[in-house]
Design a protein around this nucleic acid. Sequence first.
RNA 1: GCCCGGGUGGCGAAACCGGUAGACGCGGGGGACUUAAAAUCCCCUGGGGGCAACCCCAUGUCGGUUCGAGUCCGGCCCCGGGCACCA
Length: 838
Amino acid sequence: MGFAMPPTRIAADSGYTGGMLRDGPRDAYRPAELEAKWQRLWEERGTYRPSDTALRAAARPFYNLMMFPYPSAEGLHVGNMYAFTGADIYGRWRRMQSDDVFEPIGFDAFGIHSENFALKVGTHPMDLIPKNVANFTRQLKRSGAMYDWSRTVDTTDPRYYKWTQWIFIQLLNRGLAYKQKAAVNWCPFDKTVLANEQVINGACERCGTAVEQRFLEQWFFRITDYASRLLENLDWIDWSDSTKNAQRNWIGRSDGAEIVFDAERGRRNEEAAIPVFTTRADTIFGATYLVLAPEHPLVDSLTAEARRADVAAYVERTKRQDLTTRKSVEAREKTGVFTGAFARNPATGDAIPIWIADYVLMEYGTGAIMAVPGHDERDFEFATKYGLPIVRVVAEDEARADAPLEAPFTDNERGVIVHSAQFDGLTVPEAKQRIVAWLEAAGTAKPVVHYRLHDWCISRQRYWGPPIPIIYCDDCGMQAVPEKDLPVVLPFVKDFRPDDTGISPLARHEEWYRVPCPECGRMGRRETDVSDTFLDSAWYFLRYPSTEFDDRPFDAARTRRWLPVTSYIGGNEHAVLHLLYSRFITMVLNELGHVDFEEPFKKFRAHGMIIREGAKMSKSRGNVVVPDEYIREWGADAFRTYLMFLGPFEEGGDFRDRSISGVRRFLDRLWTTVLERREDGAAEPQVMRKLHQTIKKVGDDIPRLGYNTAVAAMMEYMNVLRAGERRAHRTEVEPLVQLVAPFAPHIAEELWERLGHDRGIFESGWPAYDESLAAEETIELVVQVNGKVRGRLHVPPNITKEEALAAALADEGIRKFVSGEPRKVVFVPGRLINIVGV
RNA sequence: GCCCGGGUGGCGAAACCGGUAGACGCGGGGGACUUAAAAUCCCCUGGGGGCAACCCCAUGUCGGUUCGAGUCCGGCCCCGGGCACCA
């Protein structure tokens, strides 16, 4: 037991009287009141709701998208608000540039997260989700973003998921959706399959439980058909490099060759061709054995009679092992077994043994490899363990052609080919080409590209998702639910708990799954799996501009005007999930003629991660920033501005409680400075110079998301405005209020109104930058002697080299470092002069 | 292991194309106002030396290029993220 520490924050009724005017406290800056006022007015006036006319005919459409949140019971996370604020500032700024900004928001409310939480607290998702959505809506409105609340999307709304199901059917009709029994990732805690993208280091992305391998009938989307296009388009789309990089890694292209090895002797003395995939065809003369994956279809027929028992036992053993163990990097000694069969190396003509080993995976390439222990780590390890021959076919140089291999030589750039007949002396890249061409001529090889990307497993044996719109009929087989019967509504069932059978909870509800076959009318059975949440979010951005239409997923004219999305800002945690799936679905819709673009997001920027006091935020640490509390304390404007100030937006930063006071003080000063302005007389040229420099800086920083430095620039200007005892002039403060507006929209609106404007500040345009007003009269010229700073001169900006040198040498403090004739003088106009060699 | 980021004061961070390192803010110290505290306002605040003008050192580390390097090149060490028995 101990005493609770008193809160260090300043309570709403404390003596904090920031923003108090010189003539008394009666008109102090009170964000809570003022923000409520403007949020009410924005809503009443429909400030951020483009009229239907505008949606149809916007002259300068700007679709400003942010990743719609999953409405958790915990409420809006500061990470959400960080991302949304960064996007909102961009949108507000574009609006002040007279763009027609459409900034919608919605809720990604289906999925295991909600369902697990509902199970935990013993409530039903259909009761839980509307409450969470209401809470999120309240929080989002309080945060001061310019959302169009007339066009929200909720993925759990049948009006929405009707079209999610429609998309499934489009893919099915196109042959891009298929059902297959396959080894899949099974999460024993969540009791469902997971997509590869949802397995992190062999564990479930959601709950962290180790994933098991199961063989189940699952629905897949053929995203692999699009691998090359998904990869190639990355070269031209305007996305953050970090995101593109993650996608490239995930798609995992490798260029190589498929080479056929003929088996020499099988159990029934059968001939068999074994294609292997390799990226190192140049090393084929060093291929001393073949390895097949234990699941390889030829294993059974190839195995020699005498080896059958051993092979069968080995295959059985690996089958029992789950995928996680088998793929985990650490602690895995390679194991394998000889089949008793041999294959002919097409390059050397030698008979080489065929082995089976678990380090070869059926799911990649052809499920078989040619092992080159001299030049591959894994093959080397395996060959050493089982005493297989190791041959050197690449060397640092020809003199070292016979140097013993203590370790595999794997450098595939440097090196020269040896012991490879007519190819000796070639470089590795040359040999790759020439050997493939040679084998190709003989009909035993062809160049091939393989991708690491797998087809997208979209079925989930859970309740809280859109039912997959399929009906099975004993007579007619599998039937898509006809479009007129969509949506297949997710029924309210009390018992939605998943079980360990690998069958969806919906399969326990006969009254729901028994339906007539759409083809013959006899009783059939619905598909009882639901689809992955990531299918819901793979197309939501297409829906926003068309939310009022119930007879189409997205209106053609609306879509032409508003899409692709102009600017998308979100987290990199979705780099290979949502962002890849959205691209895939868009490509398919494009091929089917539903949209006329194949990339959904013209521009995407990934924001950074926000940590707190140097540590990751997490519920278990108890250091999660709850936006509500901070907004109550400091106001939404101060909170927004602080989030943007704490670090570079694309890199994230460290949230420090105490630092918020800095931006709050800035807003307080803005408040008093504007209200205490004078109208008479003229602005000071020095102040106007700084103002125009600030206009330039902020205008340059916002489009590159340099929000932290934009805020710093405004603070600097504020310091200039307030230097000394003077009161600022109207023309000095008015543009500053406009610059602040994207960051702190409420206070900006209020001050704008108090400055006597009757139209809102977001209709006021963006202050114009005047270069002639920004120009300095004198500059500080740095004087270096031999590269060391020895003085500073205040000189006219257009000073010449000769004048600068003369001025420098005339300076007593500088001349004492100059003892003779300069050997060289470096002059950077407007910057510095460097006197060298004295 | 491969591919991206990143390492700068007590702290969060600035620094355009190689040209004054530390803008802006937090924290800290001092002062003004106040009976007092809070709030507000003013000054100082990288380290070391000097009475002072000033001087020396300093951007993870070692080297290089350059008149000049936080920035460019090479090696190494840490931190964050992506990929990974992927042939």
